[in-house]
Computed example of a mutant assay.
Amino acid sequence: MLANIPSQYFIIGSTVMAFLMGLFVMFVRIRSQKKPVNAKKILIPPIAMSSGGLMFIFEEFHVSPIQILEAVAVGVVFSTVLIATSKFEVRNTEIFMKRSKAFFFILAGLLILRVIMKVYLSDSFDVFELAGMFWILAFSMLWPWRLAMLFRYKKIEKTLITA
């Protein structure tokens, strides 16, 4: 059934979805800065995203080991930007994400870069294979970022407990 749909429709649809999801993440991030952070809030997004790995059950989404390595490498590089710009602050004995003026531009820049890469690579890869690679990229970007946030959070939390 999916084989009868031209691949450019998948590229356009997934690009639109990427932008909508990016806007959603930015909106959620702005709202979340008004509430204290906890370990659960830090870890839920990558755990929830892990269910997307079920796509690899289907043969169309299978990617080669070298493509996995490439996607992971790009994801880890992208995560370093997010790690560098994610900071915490203590307000009245509670831990909050610190507002970063650069965060919106960095997230938008990463999103635009991903879309450009997807459009460029869509001529070289099957659309489903590309979807798998970009899921791996996003997952490889999210986990290091969230783990770094968790370690920073725990370090600050420990100083609050001992104080």
Rank of each mutant, 00 (worst) to 15 (best):
L121C: 04
L121A: 03
K118F: 13
I11N: 00
A71H: 00
F27Q: 07
R29C: 12
Q8H: 14
M26H: 15
V16D: 10
I42T: 00
R146M: 10
V37R: 03
A163E: 10
N92F: 08
A71L: 03
R99P: 02
P45D: 06
K40M: 11
E89I: 04
M21I: 15
I57K: 10
G109P: 04
G109Q: 09
L2M: 12
F128S: 01
N38H: 10
F128N: 03
L160A: 09
V74Y: 05
I95H: 01
W145T: 00
F105A: 15
V28I: 14
Q8G: 07
S7E: 10
F27Y: 15
G53Q: 11
R29D: 12
A73R: 09
I12R: 11
V119R: 08
S7V: 11
A131S: 13
W145L: 02
G53W: 13
T93V: 09
M97P: 00
S124P: 07
K155R: 13
I136A: 01
S32W: 08
I30E: 15
L111I: 15
I47S: 05
V28A: 13
I156K: 06
G52S: 07
I42F: 01
M97H: 08
Y153H: 05
Y120F: 15
L142M: 12
E59V: 07
V90T: 08
T80L: 13
M97E: 12
R91F: 06
I116S: 12
I116P: 12
I12K: 09
L20E: 06
V115N: 03
K155E: 07
I106C: 08
S14K: 04
F104R: 15
I68E: 03
A102N: 10
V28R: 13
I30V: 14
Y153L: 05
S32I: 11
W135L: 04
V16P: 01
R31M: 09
Q33T: 10
A163C: 07
P6F: 02
W145E: 02
S122R: 04
P46I: 03
K154Q: 06
T15S: 14
